[in-house]
Design a protein around this nucleic acid. Structure first.
Lengths: 331, 331
DNA sequence: ACAACATGCTACATCGGTTGAGCAACTAGC
DNA sequence: GCTAGTTGCTCAACCGATGTAGCATGTTGT
């Protein structure tokens, strides 16, 4: 009853098998089963017969062979850093849904924020002759673009921009400025400046968010000193350690650059018995419920992903950046 | 500067191109570039020369062609329900890491807990001739197994067991029993029974967890009536609605069957201004920090995934179930 | 000097679809 | 009756990599 079926994989059904059974030629069967039969003037009766046989034989088209011959794999690849937060999880789900809706097979691979893995993953995808690669939150998107371009494969950047391919990203500046204003107004003008925590100083989004936070301070007649900008990386333990080893008192409120860093902040608050109102540039349903939460900036994943799929159609050779507004979630 | 490289994909380099440049035959180049050249008596000098040319030409082996010819795709597929929680996110990451460590290319696809999508995804993977499919948390794993078996592809079940392929799952019974005992002891014997909330009554894991919760009650001289077992599904709004429309007072403590359901519980507590200690069979770093949290059962993802990869090696035709102990996280 | 063997390669059929070219058979038009 | 056009199919050359069978050489043994 188990592990039955043709012993060792008992050779899969091919178009030749079906052609034989149907008394037709392999070409006809191929055309019928890939849908191009109407253009090839094949009688509807033949098509019906072949389709029925294919179904009853459990035929599954060999997509490797198909892609090899037609030079269109119908696979779309996505490279992303992690699956461990709601933002990237939501992107993955949306990406799959949208890809399928377009008749493409989605392949996602996660590269742990390691530029070497990013290029390795791109190479692998090139090997499978994907039609397009979307680099999400890539550390070095342009390197991916160049690697892929050498094989004639186009790339698009999501979440973090590159200079050599079109990018779709959030409006980090405005989102961060609005959240910082909210925080500053919450604690009152005399208790600033905020502490900015998390992310990489070298990455575009973090830089833009810092700019937003800076301008928010200025708008309230404050200045955020460099000592208050801790771009300690994304890992949660790094944020916790940064707070633990801070040379001055932890400021009255925190601007946290991702939920991952926020994990470290929350652990710091627990372990020290301290508490600070915070805002976070990122969203998580449970983090939103924490007492100390003042507001979270949720990136508009649906808009980001549908915009990137729109870009899929337009001619290659561009490298513009599209910014999508964020959603500020308070309470 | 952008979109350069051979106009429209300017034909990718093949072994024939390299053979020509190196003054060797395509067979030699093939053998050299796929590593089998040592067995094929090819001079090291030739190998070095070819490898250098391949590198400088940016050669990427066409894995479609390779798989077609050799009938080994080196692709391993995973079907999973969602990416929207830490459990599945962690499984995805571990799966990718382990697959890569074995030289396999991981492909994950998410099916929204829809049995039709599950089979469609399996078919697609069969089309790509994956070497193996791992069905994670599948609604109907046996249907996937049968579909794949018809094409000579083996499957393994993770998280939810099937009857027709080997399964690796958590020890749901013990985990749930321990957590229920913790909750009952927390609120004291007179304030039971608990309310069990979330999941599908039809799924094996939920049934086992209910059995554990039942036995925990019994061990404390209590009985949990059927009215207190609300398997309302996984979506968070369903849990919230179930609490909103409860015909009796919400019990003193809640046993929540997943973090997704817990989102609904947390929202209910906020919206009603009510509060209840809860335990959750699932783990999330922020949920763990909620005031009302008594304990969370964390499934041992590392053990689950490495065990499933061990099963990959043993002979087909089995359908045993391996249970992995859970980790109870308190505080 | 010649068999016996090792060394380093090449030729070619093959995997399973795809697709342009082309061929019968039949119908319509004049 | 003959050409032109349509319909319904088949032929065969691919796509790029793989691996078996085999063919020149060079080396050793007697």
């Amino acid at each position: 009853m188990s592990g039955s079926q043709g012993k060792f994989g008992g050779r899969r059904t091919t178009i030749y098998d079906i052609a034989q059974i149907a008394g037709a030629s392999p070409s006809a069967v191929s055309a019928i089963l890939n849908g191009s039969w109407k253009k090839r003037r094949i009688a509807e009766s033949t098509a019906k017969r072949v389709i029925e046989i294919a179904e009853s034989e459990g035929y599954a088209r060999n997509l490797q062979a198909s892609a090899l011959r037609s030079d269109r794999s119908n696979v779309i690849g996505m490279i992303m850093p992690k699956y461990d937060n709601r933002y990237f999880g939501a992107i993955a789900e949306q990406f799959e849904a949208k890809a399928r809706a377009r008749g493409l097979f989605p392949v996602i691979t996660c590269t742990e924020r390691n530029p070497e893995f990013e290029v390795a993953a791109a190479r692998e995808m090139i090997g499978y002759r994907v039609d397009c690669i979307i680099a999400t939150g890539a550390t070095d998107p342009d390197r991916i673009t160049r690697t892929a371009a050498a094989a004639g494969i186009r790339t698009l950047n999501l979440d973090l921009p590159g200079r050599e391919a079109p990018s779709v990203i959030s409006d980090n500046y405005s989102g961060a400025r609005d959240l910082a204003l909210l925080l500053l107004d919450k604690i009152g003008p005399t208790r600033g400046p905020l502490l900015f925590l998390g992310g990489r100083g070298s990455d575009h989004n973090t830089a833009e968010r810092i700019r937003g936070v800076r301008d928010a301070h200025e708008a309230r007649g404050l200045v955020i000193p460099d000592s208050h900008v801790l771009t300690c990386g994304y890992a949660s333990y790094k944020a916790q350690r940064a707070l633990d080893t801070l040379a001055f008192d932890v400021p009255a409120a925190l601007f946290v650059n991702s939920t991952i860093s926020l994990e470290g902040v929350a652990r710091w608050m627990r372990s020290k018995g301290q508490t600070r109102p915070f805002g976070c540039f990122d969203w998580d349903p449970f983090a939103a419920l924490l007492e100390e939460n003042v507001g979270m900036v949720k990136q508009d994943v649906t808009a980001l992903v549908s915009t990137i799929f729109d870009r899929l159609d337009d001619p290659p050779g561009q490298a513009d950046v599209t910014q999508i507004p964020c959603i500020l979630c308070t309470e």
